[in-house]
Nucleic acid binder design. Structure first.
Length: 411
DNA sequence: CGTCCACAGGAATGACGGGCGG
DNA sequence: CCGCCCGTCATTCCTGTGGACG
């Protein structure tokens, strides 16, 4: 045996490995494609609503609804950039400002962002809100402007009294002399108007567009166009795209999810050194995405919920046939003692179990056992192996972790 | 057919922390 | 900067309940 040949060239496979991607950036959500298939209606309608701005009239305020991954943001951005392009032919300014309320989520920060867009120098913090408001007004009114403010994820700010910004913005036109402003609000939540001030709603919600989820066929079409750009020719099996679409359509037709799935499938294939993406890679990618989500969900859980979950795992591992709230509570209380954390009451634990149920980590079902009481039958919905270590990562549970490690060594 | 188990889950209230207006 | 108010988490107390058992 020539020992040299064993190690030389360990990088060879990486060099001669067939690339799969032509340009994987095309499959990320930050990428804006040139065309948006199956959204022609929405584009036309939104364009017709804001078109009056080209005649220097105030365009309508618009509310856009739709679930995640239905193309709301991308359509709005597309229409806005087209409008700005068209505005080069007129002799006044059309300015669109995009604000994501998930990131910019207080009225101060929104006004501050707007004021800075108009050449003002407002600090991130420190000024009274009305001064920022005046500053924005002054900046906006300094020349003839048609201003369109896009508030993405607008439901993020109405919940917590941030709707006063909306009130300001929808009334500002009466205070502006040279400029006109309108608002496009984008929301995932169809019911968010319930929490909205009626005065705001009457001006903001005059025109609405609802984005319906894509169906499997439409998703397939979208993926096909992107895949042609993203993958090298002939590097994916013909079943891959229909499968990705079907998996994403099963859960409300989320295009973002479908694209993620396709990209991760390609990455899985790449890692396996396969020359083409096949069905098996998609299945694997789907599992990976799902388990990543679960791990993420568990990591962000409060310590008590983690302990509770660990109690369920303990009972499952003991092959307990019927897991009830009471049993979980006993084990949980024991664990609490072990890691010196005060246990919560049973009432609260009952709520935490319901929360875990809602997250899809547990499955609980109310069961009546006649004279032997009424309780919940609880089952774990996720694989134990994946989540066990993830729970023990919690710093507050380090003593439990150490205990389990020594147990393993003894065995 | 009434009892009674072992909880579910609603209401009221308290503790705490963070943002907002003055 | 401070007090106030509000939302969230948690406790206490409570009433409700499906159905096996006697």
């Amino acid at each position: 045996m020539d020992s040299k040949s064993t190690f030389t060239g360990i990088f060879e496979p990486f060099l001669k490995k067939q690339p799969i991607f032509e340009d994987r950036e095309v499959l990320r959500h930050s990428y804006t494609p040139d065309e948006l298939p199956h959204r022609e209606e929405e584009i036309k309608y939104l364009a017709s609503l804001i078109a009056p701005s080209l005649k220097e009239e105030t365009p309508s305020n618009v509310l856009i609804y739709g679930k995640s991954g239905t193309g709301k943001t991308i359509v709005t951005k597309f229409v806005c950039s087209e409008l700005e392009r068209a505005s080069s032919k007129v002799d006044f300014n059309i300015k669109t400002v995009y604000i994501n309320c998930e990131l910019v989520n207080t009225q101060y920060r929104i006004l501050c962002t707007l004021a800075n867009e108009f050449g003002k120098n407002v600090p991130f913090t420190g000024w009274p809100t009305d001064k920022v408001y005046d500053s924005f007004k002054e900046g906006a009114d300094s020349e003839n402007n048609i201003i369109i403010v896009v508030l993405d994820e607008i439901d993020r700010i109405v919940g917590k009294h941030g709707d006063s910004v909306l009130y300001y913005l929808t009334r500002i036109n009466s205070e502006l002399k040279n400029s006109k402003l309108s608002v496009i609000g984008i929301s995932n939540d169809l019911k968010f108007t319930d929490y909205l001030d009626n005065r705001v709603l009457s001006t903001l919600g005059r025109d609405e567009i609802i984005f319906k989820p894509y169906n499997a066929k439409q998703l397939e079409d979208i993926l096909k166009r992107r895949a042609e750009l993203a993958f090298l020719e002939g590097s994916f099996d013909e079943y891959v795209i229909p499968l990705c679409s079907a998996l994403a359509a099963r859960d409300h037709g989320d295009a973002r999810k479908a694209l993620d799935l396709l990209r991760v499938s390609g990455e899985v294939a790449e890692r396996e050194n396969a020359s083409i993406v096949i069905e098996r890679h998609v299945r694997k990618a789907n599992n990976k995405i799902e388990s990543d989500n679960i791990v993420e969900a568990i990591q962000t859980l409060p310590t008590h919920s983690k302990l509770l979950l660990y109690a369920v795992i303990y009972l499952e591992e003991r092959k307990e046939k019927f897991i009830s709230t009471g049993k979980i509570y006993d084990v949980y209380a024991g664990l609490c003692k072990y890691v010196s954390i005060d246990p919560l009451t049973q009432r609260r634990v009952s709520d935490l179990i319901s929360e875990l149920d809602l997250l899809g980590i547990l499955n609980s079902k109310v069961i009546s056992k006649g004279r032997y009481g009424r309780t919940k039958e609880i089952k774990l919905e996720v694989p134990i192996l994946r989540i066990k270590d993830c729970i023990l990562e919690d710093v507050r549970l380090s003593s439990l972790r150490n205990y389990i490690i020594t147990q393993r060594l003894l065995l």
